[in-house]
Lab assay of single mutants.
Amino acid sequence: LKGVVVAGGVLAGAVAVASFFLRNKRR
């Protein structure tokens, strides 16, 4: 169960970083 929580956190972080980079590329 702990691994699932960690994986979810990593996935959420990756999505946040990806969206951040996409926003920067638009400018």
Rank of each mutant, 00 (worst) to 15 (best):
V6Q: 03
G3N: 14
V15A: 12
G13K: 09
K2S: 03
A16Y: 02
A18G: 02
G13I: 05
L22R: 14
A16L: 01
L1H: 10
R26H: 10
K25Y: 07
V15E: 01
F21T: 11
V4Y: 13
A7F: 07
A18F: 00
F21Y: 12
V5Y: 00
V15H: 12
L11K: 03
L22C: 07
S19V: 13
L1S: 05
A14E: 02
V10W: 02
L22A: 10
A12R: 12
A18P: 00
V5A: 05
R26C: 05
V17S: 02
R27L: 04
F20H: 12
A12Q: 08
L1W: 03
G9Q: 15
L11Q: 04
V15L: 09
A7Y: 14
A18N: 03
K25L: 06
V4I: 08
G3C: 08
L1P: 04
N24H: 15
R23N: 06
V4R: 08
S19I: 03
G3D: 04
G3L: 12
A18W: 12
V10I: 02
G9D: 11
G13T: 03
F20W: 01
G9W: 00
R26F: 08
F20Y: 00
L11M: 11
L11G: 07
L11Y: 15
V6T: 00
A12C: 05
L11C: 12
S19Y: 05
V4Q: 14
F21I: 09
S19E: 15
V15W: 05
N24K: 15
K2H: 05
F20K: 13
G8E: 13
V5I: 12
V17T: 09
A7T: 12
A7P: 11
G3E: 00
K25W: 07
A7I: 09
V17A: 14
V6S: 13
L11N: 03
G13Y: 02
K25I: 03
V10K: 15
G9I: 08
V10Q: 05
K2G: 04
G3I: 10
K2F: 06
V17I: 10
V17F: 03
V17N: 01
A7D: 08
G3Y: 01
V6Y: 10
G8K: 12
L22V: 01
V4E: 00
G13W: 12
A7G: 11
N24C: 05
V5N: 10
N24A: 08
F20A: 02
L22W: 01
F21P: 00
G3R: 12
V10P: 09
A7S: 10
V15N: 06
L22S: 07
K25S: 05
K25A: 05
V5Q: 14
V6G: 06
K25E: 07
R23M: 00
G8D: 11
F20P: 00
A14C: 07
G9C: 10
L22H: 14
R26S: 04
A7M: 12
A7W: 01
A12H: 06
L22D: 03
L11V: 15
R27K: 15
G9K: 07
A18D: 00
R27Y: 08
A14K: 11
F21E: 03
F21G: 03
G3Q: 12
V15P: 00
K25R: 07
L22N: 03
V5L: 05
V15C: 13
V4T: 15
G13V: 05
R26K: 06
V4L: 13
V17D: 00
V5F: 04
G13P: 07
A14G: 01
F20E: 11
V15S: 06
R23K: 03
V6C: 09
G3H: 11
R23T: 12
V15D: 00
R23E: 04
V5D: 06
R27G: 09
V17Q: 05
K2N: 02
A12D: 02
L11T: 06
G9E: 15
A12V: 09
A12Y: 15
N24G: 10
R27E: 03
N24P: 05
F20I: 10
A14S: 08
F21S: 03
A16G: 02
G13A: 05
G13N: 08
R27I: 08
G8F: 15
A12G: 01
G3T: 11
A12N: 07
G8Y: 14
G8C: 09
A14H: 13
R27V: 03
K25P: 15
V17Y: 02
N24S: 09
V6E: 09
G9P: 11
F20Q: 10
L1M: 00
S19H: 15
K2R: 09
G13L: 08
V15F: 11
L1C: 04
K25C: 06
G9L: 02
G13H: 15
F20T: 09
L1I: 02
A16K: 13
V15Q: 06
A18R: 12
K25T: 08
R23C: 03
R27W: 08
N24L: 10
S19M: 08
A14T: 06
V15K: 13
V17W: 11
K2Q: 02
V17E: 00
S19R: 10
V5P: 05
V5E: 11
N24V: 07
V5T: 10
A14D: 01
K2M: 14
F21V: 13
L1Y: 02
G8V: 11
N24D: 05
V6H: 12
V4C: 05
V17K: 06
A18C: 11
N24Y: 15
L22F: 04
R23Q: 03
G9R: 12
L1N: 06
R27H: 05
R26D: 04
A16D: 01
A16V: 06
L22Y: 10
L1A: 04
V17L: 01
V6P: 08
N24I: 15
K2P: 06
V6F: 00
V10C: 12
R23P: 01
A7K: 13
L1G: 02
F21C: 01
A7R: 11
G3S: 02
K2A: 07
G8Q: 13
R26W: 09
L11H: 03
A16C: 04
S19A: 13
F20L: 07
A7E: 09
V10F: 15
A16T: 01
K25N: 04
A12P: 08
V6A: 08
V15G: 02
S19T: 10
G8S: 14
L1R: 08
G13S: 00
F20G: 08
G9N: 14
R26Q: 01
L11D: 00
F21R: 13
V5G: 04
L22K: 08
V6N: 05
R27A: 06
R26P: 02
V10M: 14
K2W: 06
V4F: 05
G13R: 14
G13Q: 15
V17H: 04
R27T: 07
S19G: 12
R27N: 05
V10G: 03
A14I: 11
K2T: 15
N24W: 01
K2E: 01
G3W: 10
L1V: 01
S19D: 15
A16S: 03
A7L: 08
V15T: 08
L22P: 03
A18Q: 09
R27M: 04
G8I: 15
A18M: 14
G8T: 04
R26V: 11
L1K: 09
F20C: 13
L22Q: 04
G8W: 12
S19W: 09
R23S: 07
R23G: 06
F21A: 10
V4N: 13
F21Q: 07
K25V: 05
V17G: 02
A12T: 09
A16I: 13
V10S: 00
K2Y: 02
R26G: 07
V17C: 10
S19N: 12
V4W: 04
G8N: 11
G13D: 12
A14P: 05
G9M: 09
A7N: 12
K2L: 09
R26A: 03
V10N: 15
A12L: 12
N24R: 13
V5K: 08
R23D: 04
L11P: 01
V5S: 01
G9S: 12
V4D: 06
L1E: 11
V6W: 09
R27Q: 06
A7H: 09
F21W: 12
R26L: 00
G3A: 04
V6I: 07
R23A: 06
V4H: 09
V5W: 01
A14L: 06
L11A: 00
S19P: 01
R26Y: 02
A18S: 05
V5C: 08
G9T: 13
G13E: 14
V6L: 05
A12E: 13
A16Q: 15
A12M: 14
A16R: 14
G9A: 08
G8L: 14
V15M: 10
V4P: 07
K2V: 09
V15I: 07
A16E: 03
K25M: 13
V10L: 11
V10D: 02
G3V: 10
A7V: 10
A14N: 08
A14Q: 13
L22G: 00
V15Y: 11
G8P: 12
V17P: 00
K25D: 02
R26E: 04
F20R: 11
R23V: 04
V10Y: 01
R26N: 04
N24T: 06
A18V: 10
A16W: 07
F20V: 10
S19Q: 11
A16H: 14
G8H: 15
R23F: 02
L11W: 11
G3F: 14
K25G: 06
A18Y: 04
F21H: 06
V6M: 15
L11I: 01
L11E: 01
G3P: 06
R23H: 10
V10E: 02
G9H: 00
L11R: 05
K2C: 03
V15R: 13
F20S: 12
A16N: 07
V5H: 02
V6D: 13
V4S: 15
V10T: 14
A18I: 12
A18K: 09
A16F: 13
A12F: 14
G8A: 11
R27S: 07
S19L: 08
F21D: 00
L22E: 02
L1F: 03
G9Y: 03
A18E: 01
A16M: 03
G13F: 09
R26I: 01
R27P: 06
A18H: 14
G9F: 14
L11F: 10
L22M: 04
A14V: 09
N24Q: 10
V17M: 14
V10A: 13
N24E: 07
N24M: 14
A14F: 01
S19C: 10
V10R: 14
A18T: 14
A14R: 13
K2D: 06
V17R: 14
F21K: 09
R23I: 02
L1D: 08
G8R: 14
A18L: 08
F20D: 04
A12S: 10
R26M: 05
K25F: 07
S19K: 13
A7Q: 15
R27F: 00
G3K: 15
A16P: 01
R23W: 03
L11S: 03
R23L: 04
K25Q: 06
R27D: 02
S19F: 00
V4K: 09
A14W: 08
L1Q: 00
G9V: 11
A12W: 11
A7C: 07
L22T: 07
V6R: 14
F21L: 10
K2I: 11
L22I: 13
G13C: 05
V5R: 13
V4G: 00
A12K: 15
A14Y: 04
R26T: 07
V4A: 11
V6K: 15
N24F: 07
